[in-house]
């Protein structure tokens, strides 16, 4: 366990000593602020037209949260692309693999650090949302489940991204591939627009959107949680296999 933490700590630190963390945080804060502004403007508009204030959760929090989920598709490749690709390029992977730590400790350490970075970015979003709580009285529970959903979805995509980063020495290749995969997973349910059964149903089940939406409505559906957890486990498993293959391929 302490090996995992040592690796996670080093990895998290390396986000913050390089400009990566600050660039991601700053850009995310800007976009997040812009989205919140739009959502609140929209809410004010609706309140003016209707009788009394509109539903704060429905018009402000829900759109902010679903935008955040879409934004994370862009963030995740930037968080994961260097995880292993950089170590392979500079040769530091030799240090990790010849030290008395297990492959799984390395992988979990890196994944935790990626989660930490993702969490920091999601934290910025809370800043924007805190204004809604300061001036209004929305229900916090759908927000809590939405955050749980975002962490599960983030964890799943991060573990897939980590696996992709382990298959190449090139960060750009890792980043681009991860972005493509995130987008595909996000849009798989489009298959249902022209076909309602068979493979379209399978694809739709694999889609992130379908599993994420319940969380934004304030529902914790075990089925959806299990979906995300299985993707996390799958990504970690694939990374482990790919790290192992380094030993007999390299």
């Amino acid at each position: 366990m302490s090996n995992i933490l040592a690796i996670a700590q080093k990895e998290l630190k390396s986000y913050f000593v390089s400009p990566i963390a600050y660039a991601l945080l700053a850009i995310y804060a800007l976009i997040s602020g812009w989205f919140s502004l739009i959502a609140i403007a929209n809410f004010i508009e609706m309140s003016m037209q209707g009788q009394g204030p509109a539903d704060l959760n429905g018009y402000v929090i829900a759109p902010i949260v679903s935008n955040a989920a879409v934004l994370s598709l862009f963030l995740i490749p930037m968080i994961t692309m260097r995880l292993f690709a950089e170590e392979k390029r500079t040769g530091t992977i030799e240090l990790l693999l010849t030290s008395p730590v297990t492959d799984m400790e390395i992988i979990l350490g890196k994944w935790l650090a990626a989660m930490g970075m993702y969490g920091a970015i999601m934290g910025i979003k809370l800043l924007c949302l805190s204004f809604v709580f300061m001036f209004g009285n929305p229900d916090w529970r759908p927000l809590a489940t939405a955050y749980l959903g975002m962490f599960l979805q983030g964890g799943a995509l991060l573990s897939i991204g980590m696996f992709i980063s382990n298959t190449t020495k090139n960060q750009i290749v890792a980043g681009a591939t991860t972005f493509g995969m995130c987008l595909l997973f996000w849009t798989f349910d489009w298959a249902t627009t022209f076909k309602a059964d068979g493979w379209a149903k399978v694809l739709a089940y694999l889609s992130l959107t379908a599993h994420f939406s319940s969380f934004t409505r304030g529902v914790i559906d075990t089925k959806d949680a299990i979906y995300f957890i299985s993707v996390i486990v799958l990504g970690i498993f694939l990374t482990a296999r790919s790290l192992e293959s380094l030993r007999w391929r390299a």
């Binding site: 390396s14 000593v17 500079t90 040769g91 992977i93 240090l95």
Partner: peptide, 9 residues
């Protein structure tokens, strides 16, 4: 052969 160093540390 190449020392396994992290340049940003």
């Amino acid at each position: 052969e190449t020392p396994p160093l992290y340049p940003d540390m």
